[in-house]
Simulated assay, not measured.
Amino acid sequence: MPPRSHGPHTYVFQLFALDQATGLPASFTLEDTLAAIKGHVLGRARLDGTYEIR
């Protein structure tokens, strides 16, 4: 959550539909995730939003 009166912050969320489970451990990195989903993405959705606390 952005600090109060700090201006708008942009957030990007992505959802991937995969043809199999990733098998990632409880602790993983972005690089681990990208390697695990490579070649298994059936579809993708993206939501961009801006949020500000005044």
Rank of each mutant, 00 (worst) to 15 (best):
His6Asn: 06
Gly7Pro: 05
Tyr51Cys: 15
Leu24Asn: 00
Leu34Tyr: 11
Gly43Glu: 11
Arg46Phe: 01
Val41Leu: 14
Thr10Lys: 09
Ile53His: 13
His40Trp: 05
Asp48Asn: 15
Phe13Cys: 11
Ala17Leu: 13
Met1Leu: 07
Arg54Met: 05
Arg4Trp: 00
Ser27Gln: 14
Ala45His: 11
Leu47Gly: 06
His6Val: 04
Gln20Ala: 10
Lys38Asn: 11
Asp48Cys: 02
Tyr11Cys: 05
Ile53Ala: 09
Ala21Gln: 07
Thr33His: 07
Ser5His: 12
Leu24Trp: 02
Thr29Asp: 03
Ser27Asn: 09
Thr29Phe: 02
Glu52Gln: 14
Tyr51Leu: 09
Arg54Ile: 06
Phe28Ser: 06
Phe28Tyr: 02
Arg54Leu: 13
Thr29Ala: 00
Ser5Ala: 12
Asp19Gly: 04
Arg44Pro: 12
Thr33Pro: 01
Ser5Pro: 05
Asp32Asn: 07
Leu42His: 12
Arg4Val: 13
Ile53Glu: 15
Asp48Leu: 09
Ser27Val: 02
Ala45Asn: 11
Gly49Phe: 02
Arg46His: 12
Ile37Phe: 00
Met1Gln: 10
Ala35Asp: 14
Asp48Phe: 10
Arg4Lys: 06
Thr33Trp: 14
Gly39Cys: 07
Met1Pro: 15
Phe28Glu: 08
Ala21Glu: 04
Ala36Pro: 00
Leu15Ala: 11
Pro8Phe: 10
Ser27His: 11
Gly7Trp: 01
His9Leu: 08
Met1Val: 03
Glu31Ile: 08
Gly39Val: 08
Ser27Pro: 09
Ala17Gly: 12
Ala36Lys: 00
Asp32Gln: 09
